[in-house]
Design a protein around this nucleic acid. Structure first.
Lengths: 152, 152
DNA sequence: CACTCTCTGTGGATGCCATCGACCTGAGCC
DNA sequence: GGCTCAGGTCGATGGCATCCACAGAGAGTG
């Protein structure tokens, strides 16, 4: 991970569809060299994939909610995780410090669907309680932070 | 947005670097047809961009925190938003229902940097108080939810 | 110091892909 | 019927991805 790798990562975070030729021009290397570097970034796990950033409301997921989960004392955290993982509405899942063991970001189409999700969560073994906060609007999301040390 | 558009969106959420030729094969159209559809999805705002998914710890952002913000009564929400927007550590910003007006997801390298961020937030005009929860680990994040109605 | 091995580059060749333009076809409408 | 438009296909062309052979820098070693 030298400065050129960081530039590549930065460029690809801004636009994942840049061609290798374009990346090569930006960082001052040849296209094959860039191809190899990016390949190594991928196989070493630095770059986990490439995703289209889609407006959620345009694919019927207009409701965003943040849900905190308090575990039962004695609950098996791994089992709970598996239960959470199968719920497709849960877009992100963080294991937290604090009273609430998990913080979920969930995306659904309607408030009714959110209700169903919350009911399902409360029925899940190991869940003592949930606390849901609805996002009225998303000001921004997953904004890439310019890479720290060798910026440009 | 017909079924083919949804398939394209799904494919690109899974791998944003798929070629138009490959997309065309997957949905059973010609490459130029796919090119035009994707172009329309982009210009209509359904597809907002393409991002490399980078492991944050590998670029020196190993600490994730969720921060709730309570506004002063009488604070100007738009001004606050502008103050928040310039802080690069804030990766996502939701305007929430509830006592806490904003919920931020912030990413920093160290706990010391997180402390600095919280201090800055508490000094920001309009901020009455903050509440910070640290993510001990990220189980998953921004997992694409398979598109609802016409799944395969 | 020279030898060698490895890592990371470059440059050239080749076949696939992006992209443009010409043309086709079916739906909706006078 | 005949217009028009949206959205397709096909073919051509230039650029790009990708493979290969080879070159130079640095580290470790006799």
């Amino acid at each position: 991970m030298d400065a050129i790798d960081l530039s590549l990562v930065d460029l690809l975070r801004g636009n994942a569809r840049l061609s290798y030729a374009e990346l090569a021009r930006q960082v001052g290397l040849s296209a094959p060299a860039v191809h190899e570097r990016v390949g190594k970034l991928e196989s070493s796990g630095v770059v986990r994939g490439y995703r289209a950033d889609v407006a959620p409301e345009s694919i019927g997921l207009g409701v965003t909610a943040l849900i905190g989960i308090v575990e039962d004392s004695g609950a098996d955290t791994d089992d709970m995780l598996e239960s959470l993982r199968v719920l497709p509405e849960i877009e992100s899942c963080y294991f937290m410090a604090g009273v609430e063991s998990f913080l979920l970001k969930a995306r659904v189409g309607t408030i009714a669907e959110l209700e169903q999700l919350i009911v399902r969560l409360n029925r899940t073994p190991g869940v003592a309680s949930t606390r849901t906060a609805i996002a009225l609007s998303t000001k921004w999301e997953n904004r890439p932070q310019p890479v720290g040390p060798p910026a440009a």
